[in-house]
Computed example of a mutant assay.
Amino acid sequence: MTPLVSIIMPCYNAVAHLPSSIASVLAQTFSDWELIAIDDGSTDSTLAWLKAQDDPRIRVHSQPNQGVSVARNAGLAKASGVYVAFLDADDTWDVHFLGKMVATLQANPDARLAYCGWQNLGLPGGRGEPFVPPDYENATKAETLFAGCRWPIHAALVRRDAVMAAGGFDPALKNAEDYALWLQVAISAAIIRVPEVLAYYHFHGIEQASGNRARAAQQHWLAQQKFLAAHPEFGLTHDTARIRALTSGQLLNRGYACYWQRDLSAAREIFRAVMKQRYGTLKDWKYMLPALLPESWHRWIIRLRNGE
């Protein structure tokens, strides 16, 4: 019997986290689902652990390591549900996630996607407060969604036909692949908010996809450029200065964030990318230009500027 929801979980060397993530799926109050786990060339015991699971709703596929986008696309090719959800192997859901998200989309048949609140767990310094995003279905939705990714990948439930029509995930993107998909799916059709925290993003000691801040910033910019190329009508509805502010300006802001948080290596890489686009005010360029110098010189200039 065809399940209503297909859950796609890419797995790479994730055996330490799978017991928690899979347990959060098994605990769902809504049970009409299939879980398609894609082992993406793991070198630990991930594949063996997955194959040892005895719930018939869990389907396991193995492939050579090709990255998360290819893994998710492989899962999509095997999915049969009306709706699809994406859960990474180190994240979890509230037990009511599927039930509430499915009920919301069924009650709103014109909506392609439902999104909910989430909480970041494991961040130091009290940065893990629960967050419920605002209602984005309004007159400024297109610009708001274009400016940045508004929910993590596991805080959404989406119609599978909409994902397939959008072409799935872009394998060329190592970051922002979910953001690029949401642009294709959510800007041109209704989306709906479930105003509850139902998804949990777990931070841990090893490098995660969001860890390389310079790459993440530039991949976000690249996803924007690809969207503009595929949807020239979006650019026609916004003046050039506004588009530049939403693309190069956002990239510059990410560079400043790295700079002020003392991640100078990432800031320098981002600043160089912004300068190639000839963006920024004179004040901005005073901060960016030292990124063309050796990093040791750049650090000396900062110390000099700070009177150290």
Score class of each variant (00 low, 15 high):
residue 288 M to L: 09
residue 245 A to T: 08
residue 109 P to A: 13
residue 103 A to T: 08
residue 105 L to T: 06
residue 180 A to P: 02
residue 264 L to E: 07
residue 241 A to D: 12
residue 222 L to I: 08
residue 77 A to N: 05
residue 108 N to Q: 11
residue 232 P to G: 00
residue 47 L to I: 09
residue 27 A to W: 14
residue 196 E to I: 08
residue 211 G to L: 04
residue 294 P to R: 13
residue 115 Y to A: 05
residue 197 V to G: 03
residue 13 N to I: 02
residue 298 H to G: 12
residue 153 I to N: 08
residue 227 F to A: 02
residue 106 Q to C: 07
residue 125 G to K: 10
residue 82 V to Y: 00
residue 46 T to S: 12
residue 208 Q to A: 04
residue 64 P to G: 07
residue 196 E to G: 05
residue 261 Q to M: 09
residue 118 W to V: 02
residue 136 Y to K: 03
residue 180 A to M: 04
residue 245 A to M: 08
residue 164 M to V: 15
residue 81 G to F: 09
residue 256 Y to C: 06
residue 296 S to V: 13
residue 1 M to D: 11
residue 61 H to K: 06
residue 182 W to S: 09
residue 162 A to K: 08
residue 9 M to N: 02
residue 131 F to I: 13
residue 285 W to I: 04
residue 111 A to Y: 01
residue 239 D to F: 01
residue 286 K to S: 13
residue 132 V to Q: 03
residue 207 E to L: 04
residue 253 N to Y: 00
residue 61 H to E: 12
residue 104 T to D: 03
residue 172 A to P: 04
residue 84 V to K: 00
residue 125 G to V: 15
residue 69 S to W: 03
residue 222 L to S: 07
residue 47 L to M: 07
residue 75 G to Q: 03
residue 239 D to M: 00
residue 135 D to F: 08
residue 292 L to V: 11
residue 291 A to P: 03
residue 266 A to M: 10
residue 80 S to D: 11
residue 292 L to G: 11
residue 79 A to N: 03
residue 259 Y to V: 07
residue 141 K to N: 02
residue 156 A to M: 14
residue 299 R to H: 08
residue 105 L to H: 05
residue 259 Y to P: 04
residue 173 L to P: 01
residue 110 D to R: 12
residue 76 L to F: 03
residue 12 Y to K: 14
residue 76 L to C: 03
residue 73 N to R: 00
residue 183 L to F: 06
residue 71 A to M: 06
residue 53 Q to F: 10
residue 273 A to R: 01
residue 284 D to M: 03
residue 211 G to M: 07
residue 290 P to D: 09
residue 120 N to R: 15
residue 190 A to K: 15
residue 254 R to F: 10
residue 215 R to A: 10
residue 145 L to E: 02
residue 204 H to R: 06
residue 289 L to Q: 11
residue 184 Q to H: 11
residue 264 L to T: 08
residue 147 A to E: 12
residue 69 S to H: 02
residue 56 P to E: 13
residue 108 N to W: 04
residue 45 S to Q: 15
residue 150 R to M: 09
residue 233 E to C: 05
residue 190 A to D: 15
residue 191 I to L: 01
residue 107 A to T: 05
residue 78 K to M: 15
residue 164 M to Q: 15
